[in-house]
């Protein structure tokens, strides 16, 4: 498999009233047709990583370092028209809350058609029929009628389906999904996940799926990258992560999960809180909360230890003992 997206040593810093080092050296790659889940808690830099790929972060307050390549092209160097052409055609994005991500004063059909016209320069009629096709593909019932609906006339699940239809209308090769099921009911959540998985396979599309819910990652992902404090602490296939978590943070995350918890017993929450990231981490950012922290953890950033293809852990405990 060849990589479609390669992120190398990405750093993102927000300046303003308070400086935040949101991303501190993230390297990732996503293969063609692969679904990668970015797993982590709020503020771990998952969404920021996604938005960096699209250059959606507020330009004046953001400093981005490192490299992002999409199909060999340097994405961070794209500007103006080329950037606008890239967004929505090569890479599309769906958002956490579709009721906020759709324009309230345009009908769904118009919003989808607008994207198609923008990227493919087709006629209004052709774009509209594409919009209708897309609504059918995401299985919105009575799609013809829904075409002229406004976002506020749809239910949450329907809106997210419409958002997916919009994102996939121009056949992107990469879909960025920013917690697209978090705002939905549990049952609707599962339907949307299944739909996404199905469409991903049909269209042979790569997906980066951001979530804080390991249960969601299991449903959708081939591979998982666990993020903490703007760094990747562990990557592996979904089964490797579930069955054999190596990083203490991943272990904590799994232990804190509701699945398999015994009724009445307390959940094993990870004690402490993530760092505020006003300074870039100079030691292991998880060390203050880590049950197996060593003195060396507080001295330097842990090395990323490779354990087989696509499997890496950023922890000193993974290093071969020094001879």
């Amino acid at each position: 498999m060849t990589a479609l997206v390669e992120i190398e040593d990405l750093t993102v810093r927000f300046s303003g009233e308070r400086t935040v080092h949101a991303i501190n050296g993230v390297s990732l790659s996503v293969a063609k047709g692969e679904v990668l889940a970015l797993l982590g808690e709020s503020g771990s830099g998952k969404s920021v990583t996604l938005k960096s790929i699209m250059q959606l972060l507020p330009g004046r307050r953001t400093q981005i370092g490192g490299r992002i390549r999409f199909d060999g092209r340097d994405v961070l160097a794209l500007k103006g028209r080329a950037l606008a052409d890239f967004r929505g055609r090569d890479v599309a994005m769906i958002f956490q809350d579709p009721s906020l991500a759709l324009d309230p004063v345009y009908s769904i059909g118009t919003q989808i058609a607008e994207t198609v016209i923008r990227h493919e320069g087709v006629s209004r009629v052709a774009a509209r029929s594409r919009a209708l096709d897309m609504l059918k593909r995401v299985r919105i019932p009575s799609a013809e009628r829904r075409l002229d609906n406004y976002p506020h006339e749809m239910s949450g699940g329907m809106r997210q389906r419409a958002m997916i239809a919009l994102a996939l209308a121009c056949g992107p090769r990469l879909l960025l999904a920013d917690e697209p099921t978090t705002a939905l009911d549990a049952t609707v959540q599962m339907q949307v996940l299944l739909l996404l998985r199905e469409l991903q396979q049909e269209m042979d599309m790569s997906v980066i799926f951001v979530t804080h819910d390991i249960g969601v990652a299991v449903e959708i992902a081939d591979r998982v990258a666990v993020m903490y404090a703007g760094t990747i602490v562990e990557t592996g296939t979904i089964s490797q992560i579930i069955k054999d978590p190596r990083h203490p943070y991943t272990k904590g995350l799994l232990a804190a999960n509701l699945h398999g918890a015994v009724k009445g017993s307390r959940l094993d929450a990870i004690p402490g809180a993530p760092p505020t990231l006003e300074e870039p981490p100079t030691s292991c950012p998880f060390a203050p909360r880590c049950p197996s922290a060593l003195p060396v953890c507080r001295e330097a950033r842990p090395p990323l230890v490779n354990r087989g293809p696509g499997r890496a852990v950023a922890c000193v405990l993974e290093q071969e003992p020094a001879i």
């Binding site: 699209m54 959606l56 028209r81 606008a84 052409d85 890239f86 967004r87 929505g88 055609r89 599309a92 994005m93 958002f95 809350d97 906020l100 991500a101 759709l102 324009d103 309230p104 004063v105 345009y106 607008e114 994207t115 923008r118 990227h119 919009l166 994102a167 121009c170």
Partner: peptide
Amino acid sequence: DFVQALYAKGMTRTGVLRH
């Protein structure tokens, strides 16, 4: 959010300002 979503679907500045 929808303004970010508009940029994300490739709208140019003029298109976004129309919205």
